[in-house]
Each structure stands twice: as structure tokens, then as C-alpha cells.
Design a protein around this nucleic acid. Structure first.
Length: 608
DNA sequence: TTACACT
């Protein structure tokens, strides 16, 4: 049902974010044969498997047994340096028929919906991708580290395999985003990676594609069977339940009909259903830390077969609240150490002290910084207004009324309002509702059902205003958020960066308004600096506050147009200062000669 | 000090 205001914004917000993830759709009927998991990696017999052959016994749910060999991708890649990695390329003639396969005989739900294959033959124009590639022109990129693999320009250049390539087309991805262009070759080369890139710039695909293709072509020892413990090959951790769900949804699209199984586990939901999913088999586990620790303690999951570890929103995962849990998972359970697994850390912000912590998890890693696509660029118009606490509600009301008067609201113009506390979120939601604004709220004191419901009605536009705590600050991809209001400013500039990154997604423009008052003095300088960097109009009064330099504990991760800079380059972490050349400013060649593994000479001792 | 992360 469309009404006039919806029509009026239709032209403004015409993003198209690919196919919706329909559920209940039947699997493609084209799939005529099935290669069971326990045969997929068998040495290849002379004849390909007949459609009717094989099929696991009903209780064969731990898959991938038997000696492994066989890669459909026989060609060898240039070796970019990792010794003893898991990139099992080089063999030829193997394969499992390119028809997918899987852990159980049940049909895999088509995450693309019924009609996904219909237009596969059409040529894709950029209108369909949901990503405005023009916005990616001239994105500045920095890489550092030893022997950095060169970026690619097209998916065709990347050897991800037929099945993944098909999913890329189903996703209507025309060409890789900047972070994908750099991160995928790095990851395919088996290298560890620390990457700064705004979510919404294709980060999830950047770490999922290499993991999926690596699992498909890799050879792994037989996973124990007959026990209630499952042994995933890849672990993806994220700081919130909703973000884990979102990663899971995406990963299922990327792995459709590849035979690679993705399972999600998070708290607030009944554990039994998650356990059942796990017991049906799992290659890639997406999880929040708390629930994963629970599963590990119950010995339902073992990490001893982990070959890929990805931390999304890695700086959050390593900050005070999360660090002990993450260390426990990564260092104190049965996960293979750095060097024996491949580790990828992604975040839009990477403060140096967090980089230092993170380097414990990495071996000879490459640092990658992709200029922000969605936050401190001109894609987001940032405004700051001086509003006393007592005036915030009426000021918010003014903003919302003004929006409505301009026709900027409705299904395609959602407003996300960030507050500091859970109580504050409830209070503001209630106040908005009794004042006639269709609002809902999401925060950690609501039940998981309520949280998911809130996100759903917000996305659908049924409640086009969402009041949120920082639970919604990171990573969530909510199309059509046209306005982010920082009703309460966060205490940390990086949190601000993540919050406003909920708008201006995938190359589209957005508006971010912040309410500033005496309670936010410590934010004046970092906020003014950030806005300045982003060519935003900085109000004169904010510059005045900033020049008085309050607080000062608010670090900017890096300068200029980047979300961060390799802390190994910072001389304060490098006492010796002797010609350590980690850094190649032009992302091209040369300049790695002095790097000798680990963190490099003079660096390891810098903080111990 | 808050928020997030398991029953």
C-alpha cells in the first residue's frame, strides 16, 4: 500500500539491495545429482559420480571423512609467502561435480528465493547492485606488510570456483568493492589480515568468499565422528546477535550449493535448535562470544579444526568488555595458534592500542586500510547542534516534523536515533509513541524476540523510527536509513563513526545529526577534527570548544581519510627505528626487504 | 559509567 509521502520519497531513495532473502523457497530444481559429503573429497575415480550414487547414511553428519584430495581448480597461484598454509591448490582433476552437495540429504533452502535464477542470463547494470560504484572511484587505499598480493579488478580474475561465482552472480555483484579487491587476494594467498573498512562496503563478502572457497578446495584431516561434538573449519565472531544473524544470512547466500554449511549460534534464543543445526554438520560457525563459550564448555563445539578465524568489528571484540572472552576463545581453548590457522580482522576503526592487542592473534599479517566509503566522506552530511539535555526531546520532535514536512520519511527514509542508555531508549520510544511518532526500540534489556521484532518493523518501515543503544551501532545493514540522530553523543569518537555509518550505506548519501552540550566536552575536539577531515561544516562554537582541548583521551585511530593506519609504522611502537620498511604507500611493489616475519625487528620489543 | 556478550 502506497501513500503520497511514500511516493514522494520513492525517487529520493531508490536503492535496490539485491534480491531479498526469501524463505521457504524450494531448492533449485535444476540440481539433478547429489554428491554426499563423505564422497566429495575422495580420490577421484575414473567416472564422475552418477546422480543416484552415494548419499550419506542418515547418521552421517560429520562429513568430510576419508582421505582428501581433489581440487577443481588445478591451476597454481603465485605464492605470496605463507609457508605451510592451507591453500590446497595445485591438484587437478578432482572435484565434486560442481553441483553442491552437502551435509544432509535435505534440500538446501534457496536463500535467493524462487526467481533468483530467472534473470541470471541478463546483463547486470549497476542499478541492480545496490552499490553505487561511482562512489568508490578514487578511494584511497593503504597496505603494509610483507609481500602484499596485488589487488584484482574483477571477480573473474579471482579463482573462487564455479559455485561461488554463480552465487556472486545471483547476488548481482558486478565487480568487487575496494575492500574486496584487496582483501580477497590477500586472503586467498593464505595471509593473515587486519583490515579497516566501513561495513556496507562489502566487508562480509570479503572474508566469506575466501573462507568458502578455501573450504571447498582444501584438504582437511578427517573430522571425528560418532561424538556429539562438532568441529567447524571456520569461525566468524561478531559483537551482537543481530550482526551474527546478518552475517549468517549473507554467508548462506555465498555458500549456496557449494556444500559448505554455515550455522549461527547466539544467545537469547533457545539453544536446542542451534544444537540441532550444529549436529547436522557445520563448516562455518558464525557466533557471538557468550553463546560460543557456552557451547565450548558443554563440549558441543571444538575449535581444534579451525582453519579460518574472522573477527568482525574486531576493535569492539578486543575492547575492555569483550577482550577476556575473546582471548579465552582464541587462546585458551583448543584452537590452532596463529600461523596454523588463517586469521582475518575487520573493522571500520582500529585504534592503535587495539591493533597491538590484535597482533597477538596474527602471524606476519598484512594491514589494509580502505578509505571510508560511508562515514567520513561526503556521502554523509554531518551536522552538530548545541542542545541542552532538557531541550533534546522537543528538538528531536522539531527535526522529525521538519522531515515529515519535506516528505522525507516513510519506508524509504528511516530514522535511527541513538541514545546512551537502555532506560533512555525505552523512555524515548514511549515518549515518541505517545506523541504520534511510530517508533520502536532496540537494546540489550529487551528480549531477543523484541529485538528482532523491532529491527523487522523498522526495516519494513512500519515503525520508521528506531531508538537504539549501541547494540545497533555496528555492522547492521539496514537499507533506507536516511537519517542517524545522535540524541546522546557516545563517549568515543569511534562509536560515533560506527553509528553514523548506519546511513550512507553502499555508496548512498545520508544525514547524521548530533546533539551536543556541556556533557560532551571531551568529544568536541575529536568530533571537530573528524568533521573537518570529512569536509563537513564545523560550527564555530564547536571549534571553540575543540581548541580548549578538553579531556584528550579520545584518540583518533589515524589521520586523514583513513579509518586507521598500521600501528607497526608508528615510531612509538618501534624503539629501534632502524629501517623497518613495512609500508608501501603505493600498494604496488617493492619495499618489503627488511621485514623478517613476526612483527618485524624492533617492533616486538616495543610494548613488552 | 554504559553497553554488549550465556542459562
Amino acid at each position: 500500500m502506497r501513500n503520497s509521502w511514500a511516493d514522494s520519497v520513492e525517487n529520493v531513495a531508490t536503492d535496490n539491495v539485491g534480491p531479498s532473502g526469501g524463505t521457504g523457497a524450494s531448492a533449485s530444481t535444476r540440481r539433478s545429482s547429489y554428491v554426499p559429503p563423505h564422497l566429495r573429497n575422495k580420490p577421484i575415480a575414473a567416472e564422475p559420480l552418477a546422480p543416484s550414487q552415494g548419499g550419506p547414511p542418515g547418521n552421517d553428519r560429520l562429513g568430510f571423512n576419508g582421505p582428501t584430495s581433489g581440487s577443481r581448480w588445478g591451476g597454481s597461484r603465485p605464492d605470496y609467502g605463507r609457508q605451510g598454509g592451507y591453500s590446497g591448490g595445485g591438484r587437478s582433476g578432482g572435484g565434486w561435480g560442481g553441483r553442491g552437495g552437502g551435509w544432509s540429504r535435505e534440500r538446501e533452502v534457496n536463500p535467493f528465493g524462487n526467481d533468483a535464477d530467472v534473470d541470471l542470463e541478463q546483463s547486470f547494470d549497476q542499478e541492480n547492485t545496490g552499490i553505487n560504484f561511482d562512489a568508490y572511484e578514487d578511494i584511497p587505499v593503504e597496505t603494509s606488510g610483507e609481500n602484499v598480493p596485488p589487488p584484482v579488478n574483477t571477480f573473474a580474475e579471482i579463482d573462487l570456483g564455479e559455485a561461488v561465482n554463480l552465487n556472486i552472480r545471483r547476488c548481482k555483484y558486478v565487480k568487487p568493492t575496494p575492500v574486496q579487491r584487496y582483501a580477497i587476494p590477500i586472503s586467498l594467498a593464505g595471509r593473515d589480515l587486519m583490515a579497516c573498512a566501513q561495513t556496507g562496503s562489502g566487508k562480509t563478502a570479503a572474508f566469506c568468499f575466501p573462507i568458502i572457497s578455501g573450504i571447498m578446495r582444501g584438504s582437511f584431516p578427517q573430522r571425528p565422528r560418532g561424538v556429539r561434538t562438532v568441529f567447524p573449519l571456520a569461525l566468524i565472531l561478531s559483537p551482537t546477535r543481530e550482526l551474527s544473524m546478518q552475517i549468517h544470512e549473507e554467508a548462506k547466500k555465498f555458500s549456496y550449493e557449494t556444500g559448505v554449511r554455515v550455522v549461527v549460534a547466539y544467545g537469547g534464543a533457545p539453544i536446542n535448535q542451534q544444537l540441532r543445526e550444529l549436529e547436522r554438520g557445520v563448516d562455518i560457525l558464525v557466533a557471538t562470544p557468550g553463546r560460543l563459550v557456552d557451547l565450548l564448555e558443554r563440549a558441543k563445539v571444538s575449535l581444534q579444526m579451525i582453519r579460518y578465524l574472522a573477527l568482525d568489528e574486531a576493535d569492539r571484540m578486543l575492547d575492555m568488555g569483550f577482550e577476556p572472552q575473546i582471548r579465552r576463545i582464541v587462546e585458551q581453548m583448543d584452537m590452532p595458534p596463529p600461523g596454523e590457522r588463517q586469521t582475518m580482522l575487520f573493522s571500520a576503526t582500529f585504534p592503535k592500542e587495539i591493533q597491538r592487542l590484535a597482533s597477538d592473534f596474527l602471524a606476519n599479517y598484512i594491514f589494509l586500510a580502505v578509505g571510508r566509503v560511508g562515514s567520513s566522506t561526503d556521502l554523509i552530511v554531518q551536522r552538530v547542534e548545541f542542545v541542552h539535555d532538557g531541550d533534546k526531546r522537543s528538538h528531536l520532535m522539531d527535526l522529525l516534523h521538519a522531515q515529515m514536512a519535506n516528505g522525507v520519511h516513510g519506508k524509504h527514509a528511516l530514522t535511527l536515533v541513538f541514545v546512551e542508555t537502555k532506560k533512555g531508549a525505552d523512555a524515548l520510544e514511549h515518549w515518541l509513541c505517545i506523541n504520534g511518532f511510530p517508533a520502536t526500540a532496540i537494546h540489550g534489556d529487551r528480549t531477543q524476540q523484541e529485538r528482532e521484532q523491532a529491527l523487522r518493523t523498522f526495516k519494513r518501515g512500519d515503525t520508521p523510527i528506531l531508538v537504539a543503544t549501541d547494540v545497533a551501532a555496528r555492522g547492521l545493514d539496514i537499507p533506507h536509513v536516511s537519517h542517524v540522530i545522535n540524541f546522546d553523543l557516545p563517549n568515543d569518537i569511534d562509536d560515533y563513526v560506527h553509528r553514523i555509518g548506519r546511513t550512507g550505506r553502499a555508496g548512498k548519501t545520508g544525514l547524521a545529526t548530533a546533539f551536543f552540550n556541556e556533557g560532551n566536552l571531551s568529544m568536541s575536539k575529536p568530533l571537530a577534527d573528524l568533521m573537518q577531515e570529512a569536509n563537513q561544516e564545523v560550527p564555530e562554537w564547536l571549534t571553540r570548544y575543540a581548541s580548549r582541548s578538553y579531556g584528550g583521551r579520545n584518540r583518533r585511530a589515524g589521520g586523514g581519510r583513513f579509518g586507521g593506519r598500521d600501528f607497526r609504522r608508528d615510531s612509538s611502537y618501534n624503539r629501534s627505528g632502524v629501517g623497518v620498511n613495512y609500508y608501501d604507500g603505493g600498494n604496488s611493489s617493492g619495499g618489503y626487504g627488511n621485514y623478517s616475519g613476526g612483527y618485524g625487528p624492533g617492533v616486538t620489543s616495543a610494548w613488552d
